[in-house]
């Protein structure tokens, strides 16, 4: 069995810097981590390898420094890491990103064996779109299972998978055919600590580094900023509310009573409603 996990290196902190002309994020100087949601995808892949054997390949697209996140992934015990890096990929929105990742996944399939499952996290913490997983699936013609909390069964003979998918108001138990793309829900598992052997291997392992050309990307014009249908035109902080907050003076009467007086002064009907709510509780 061959599993591919797509991960993304993301800024670790709330520190942000924005390029004043291009309005794109400036990543220099901000500590980076593996997107936390991707750790659930990594563990899901490793757990399946524990049960069924095979190999796990991790793929990321990013600047050369994204190698760090691949080395980190190797410490968990994955078998192979592929870094897709090329200046043509810079500034990609989700559509351009899935174009490049889909090409790389095809190339990984040709080079190391076709994948049975492609995993991603449910979304990233920097982009928060949740669009890349479904986009990869569509481009590769894979069936997709998003927001998966649990993989119930995997039948490699029959080429089927059954999984529990979080939906509004409940859980859908879905069965579909392999190969497929799975986006893992948060808190669905806990990433393992790799062993010493994995740590040593991670430090020494050779990372497969592919440019757009190496990955067989057919049309550079569909990559990066050029290949992105969406255009970020303005980046800004929201203005403060026009009316300043009324600050409660904490000298004088007990501050709790003063605050409550302010609240009910501003929203006179609230007191009766709260009393009704409090009684009903």
């Amino acid at each position: 069995m061959h599993i591919i996990v797509c991960i993304k290196q993301v800024p670790d902190s709330a520190q942000i810097r924005v390029h004043p002309v291009t309005n794109t994020i400036m990543r220099q100087g901000v500590p980076t981590i593996i997107n936390p949601y991707d750790l659930f995808a990594l563990e899901a892949a490793l757990a399946l390898r524990d049960r069924f054997g095979g190999t796990v390949t991790v793929l990321t697209m990013g600047p050369p420094s994204a190698e760090d996140s691949l080395r980190k992934a190797l410490t968990f015990g994955i078998d192979r890491a592929v870094l897709l890096t090329d200046r043509f990929f810079a500034g990609a929105d989700t559509l351009a990103t899935t174009y490049a990742l889909a090409a790389a996944i095809r190339k990984i399939g040709e080079t190391f064996g076709a994948p049975d499952i492609v995993f991603t996290g449910k979304q990233t913490i920097d982009g928060d779109t949740a669009q890349v997983g479904p986009g990869i699936a569509k481009r590769l013609g894979l069936l997709q299972l998003t927001y998966v909390a649990k993989i119930n069964t995997l039948d490699l003979e029959a080429g089927t998978i059954e999984a529990e998918r979080r939906s509004e108001g409940g859980v859908q138990v879905l069965q579909t055919r392999l190969p497929c793309l799975v986006t893992m829900l948060e808190a669905s598992n806990e990433i393992r600590r790799g062993g010493m052997a994995d740590a040593l291997r991670a430090a020494r392992a050779e990372i497969v580094k592919w440019s757009a050309q190496d990955a067989g990307v057919a049309d550079i014009a569909k990559c990066g900023l050029r290949g992105s249908p969406t255009i970020v035109k303005r980046v800004f902080a929201p203005p403060p509310r026009a009316e300043k907050a009324t600050m409660v003076d904490i000298a004088g009467q007990p501050p709790a009573d003063a605050l409550i007086a302010h609240i009910f002064q501003r929203a006179p009907k609230l007191e009766a409603e709260l009393a009704a709510l409090a009684r009903g509780y």
Partner: peptide, 17 residues
């Protein structure tokens, strides 16, 4: 979100989440 990502990729258009 599951649907929008698939539809936008099929139509090759922009999607803002």
């Amino acid at each position: 979100r599951d649907l929008a990502g698939s539809v936008a990729t099929t139509l090759l258009t922009g999607l803002t989440a």
